[in-house]
Design a protein around this nucleic acid. Structure first.
Length: 239
DNA sequence: AAGGATTACAACCGCAGAGGA
DNA sequence: TTCCTCTGCGGTTGTAATCCT
C-alpha cells in the first residue's frame, strides 16, 4: 500500500460491512492486515478488526445493558479495574468497547458512590455473588473461551452450564438471519448461491498455502459479493 | 418548538507484547 | 539477538440520539 494512498476513516457503510463480513468468512478472524489489503476496503487492518469485533461479530448483543450486566460490570470493575477486555469475557455478547463506554458515561460515578457509602470488598459471599462460578464451570468456560472451534459463549443460568456457538453454527444462522443487512435486496440471495462448505474449506486451504504468493494475474475468488476481485498481492510486502 | 445538556455509541490513536525473519 | 510486523488493549474523541428546560 503506497503511503500516499489515503486510508478511509470514519463511519462504515453497509457495503463496507458486507464486504468485510464476506472476507472474514473467507479468511477467518485473524490476519487483519491481509484481509484489509485483499478486500480492497481501503481501511487499515486495525479498523477492520475493530469493526468486526465491536459491531459485526455474530452473537453480539446490541442495546442497553440489563440490570444483571450492570451489576456484573460494577462487581468485576471493583475486582479488576479497567481491564475491559477481561471484564468483557465474562459478559458474553458484550465488547470491551461497549463496557468501557457504558462505564465511562454513567456507571463510574454510581459505583464510586456505592463504594463510598456501604460496600466493602469482602461483603459479598460467593453464594450471593451472581458471578461466582464453580471450578468446573470456570474450567469449561476457559475451554470454550480458548477453544479453536467455539467463537462465542455464555453461561446459561437455567441449564447451569456454559454454552457456545461454533463459527459454522453462527454462519448457518446468518444464512437465515434477522440481521437487517443480510436481508437487503440481492445480498441474501447471493450468499445462498454459494454453499458455506464450498466457500470455507477449499479456499481457506488454498489461501493458507498459496494466497500470499499469488503473482501475475488478478486472483478472482468465489464470493457472494458481485465480481469480487483480489488485485495483485504480495503478502507481507507493500505494493 | 427550540436549543442546550446529557447519554450512547462508533471509531481512532498510541502503546505494548508476541512472534517471525 | 535484534528488528519488524501484526494484533490486542486501554484511553480518548467525535457525533448522533435523546432528554430536559
Amino acid at each position: 500500500m503506497a503511503a500516499s494512498e489515503e486510508m478511509r476513516k470514519g463511519p462504515w457503510t453497509e457495503q463496507e460491512d458486507m464486504h468485510l463480513v464476506c472476507y472474514v468468512h473467507l479468511f477467518g478472524e485473524s490476519r487483519w492486515d491481509f484481509i484489509a489489503k485483499v478486500s480492497g476496503l481501503n481501511r487499515t487492518g486495525k479498523s477492520c478488526r475493530l469493526r468486526w469485533l465491536n459491531y459485526l461479530h455474530p452473537g453480539l448483543k446490541h442495546g442497553r445493558m440489563t440490570p444483571q450486566e450492570e451489576q456484573l460490570i460494577v462487581e468485576l470493575h471493583s475486582r479488576w479495574g479497567n481491564r475491559w477486555s477481561r471484564i468483557a469475557r465474562k459478559l458474553p455478547g458484550r465488547t470491551d468497547n461497549e463496557i468501557k463506554n457504558y462505564w465511562r458515561t454513567h456507571k463510574r460515578k454510581k459505583a464510586q458512590e456505592r463504594q463510598n457509602s456501604h460496600l466493602s470488598p469482602s461483603s459479598s459471599s460467593s453464594s450471593q455473588n451472581p458471578i461466582a462460578m464453580t471450578e468446573a464451570e470456570k474450567k469449561r468456560l476457559e475451554q470454550i473461551n480458548h477453544g479453536n472451534s467455539i467463537s462465542t459463549s455464555w453461561f446459561d443460568e437455567e441449564d447451569g452450564e456454559v454454552k457456545g456457538y461454533s463459527m459454522d453454527q453462527i454462519w448457518n444462522e446468518l444464512a437465515i438471519s434477522e440481521i437487517p443487512w443480510l436481508n437487503f435486496e440481492g445480498w441474501k440471495e447471493k450468499i445462498n448461491e454459494v454453499e458455506v462448505s464450498e466457500m470455507a474449506s477449499p479456499l481457506w486451504d488454498y489461501s493458507e498455502s498459496q494466497m500470499g504468493k499469488v503473482d501475475g494475474e488478478d486472483l478472482k475468488i468465489i464470493s457472494p459479493m458481485p465480481a469480487l476481485t483480489i488485485p495483485n498481492y504480495h503478502y507481507g510486502t507493500e505494493m
